[in-house]
């Protein structure tokens, strides 16, 4: 056995979010446009989902570009120089070039030097998963500041002929700068997965088998039928409301915070009906402001929590220093919830 010892190391006592920023694509898709694809009505879409319009990215609004825009705002809000960022984590399920990770390009464009940069896949819980990693990196001493980005182009995975999902998804990016803090700014993160329900929300087909099919099956060129996102609505609804209400309560308990002390409830913007039912299941007091960004943004998966957080802070609905309960949940199934101090 060697007598040499590895020198101990440690980081900041606590971590918190120092700044958030978002990017919303220019093109607005109102429900009226969706009605050109599916047999439905504005009222039906609104009562089933709470969505009035969503943003869809154009060709120049790539995953990298939207991320750089959102992260630039978050870094400015945090008031730090990008060179102090020691980690870039990008949560996404809709960046179609797997290698290299898109995070490295984003880190380079932002001026984050040689910061470790990598992508994670945790669907609609991606932001919470990234936050958990960032919290550990900062407190463990492997980074001073970490950039967590949730970014999606779900329009690329939307089957516009599927009446049950065509109206749901949107595109965008949300970013947070996480860094050291003298007081706890991120409660213990309650996170997990349930692979027994892997088929409840899923891409319809793997890329390799989809592309291996002859044109006769798949169509040709631009008409080629891509894999898309599908979900079993009732099963997802039941899990997202009643199982996730328990997870949200665990996050409150772990932080030692009661619901009436919250300055904001920011659930993943999956569906307004899920949010409303979750409020009931959690017995959240009416006094707590609730994120309802989905009405104008649609479901943007990993991007939805930071986008909604930015909107609540900008509109004054929630204030810096307030406590917010965040919870992400989605395909996997995966989930992550925590109480955080708003930047």
């Amino acid at each position: 056995m060697s007598t040499a010892r590895i020198q101990p190391h440690s980081g900041a006592a606590f971590a918190r979010i120092h700044g958030v920023g978002g990017y919303r694509p220019v093109r607005v898709i109102p429900n009226a446009e969706v009605l050109g694809w599916i047999e439905s009505s504005d009222e039906w879409i609104r009562t089933r989902s709470g969505i009035a319009e969503r943003r869809w990215a154009g060709p120049s609004e790539t995953v990298a570009e939207m991320s750089v825009q959102a992260a630039g705002k978050a870094i400015a809000a945090a008031g730090i120089d990008a060179s102090r960022i020691g980690g870039v984590i990008v949560a996404t399920v809709s960046h179609f070039k797997q290698t290299p990770a898109v995070a490295t390009e984003i880190a380079e464009r932002l001026g984050c030097g040689t910061a470790p940069a990598f992508d994670i896949s945790a669907a609609c819980a991606g932001f919470g998963y990234g936050l958990s990693l960032a919290d550990g990196m900062i407190r463990g001493g492997s980074a001073e500041y970490v950039l967590v980005i949730g970014v999606e182009r779900l329009s690329d995975l939307t089957d516009t002929t599927d009446r049950s999902t065509a109206f749901i998804f949107g595109d965008g990016a949300g970013a947070a700068v996480v860094g050291p803090s003298d007081t706890p700014g991120i409660g213990r993160i309650i996170w997990g997965s349930d692979g027994s329900q892997k088929d409840v929300i899923t891409q319809t087909e793997a890329w390799d088998t989809a592309f291996a099919k002859p044109d006769a099956v798949n169509g040709v060129g631009a008409e080629q039928k891509w894999p898309a996102l599908r979900m079993e609505g009732q099963t997802v609804f039941r899990w997202a409301v009643w199982e996730m209400a328990k997870v949200a309560q665990q996050a409150l308990d772990a932080a030692g915070v009661t619901a009436d002390q919250l300055g904001a409830f920011i659930p993943h913007q999956a569906n307004m009906r899920i949010t409303d039912a979750m409020i009931k299941a959690l017995k959240l007091p009416d006094s707590v402001p609730v994120a309802r960004d989905i009405a104008e943004t649609g479901n943007t998966s990993a991007a939805s929590i930071p986008l909604a957080m930015e909107r609540m802070l900008e509109s004054g609905e929630a204030k810096s220093g307030d406590l917010a309960l965040i919870i992400g949940f989605g395909a996997g199934l995966v989930y992550a919830a925590a109480v955080v101090t708003l930047p």
Binding site: R48, Q234, V241
Partner: peptide, 11 residues
């Protein structure tokens, strides 16, 4: 009663 309300009724 739509499909999501049905889930609420069931629970």
């Amino acid at each position: 009663v739509d499909s999501l309300s049905m889930v609420e009724v069931v629970v």
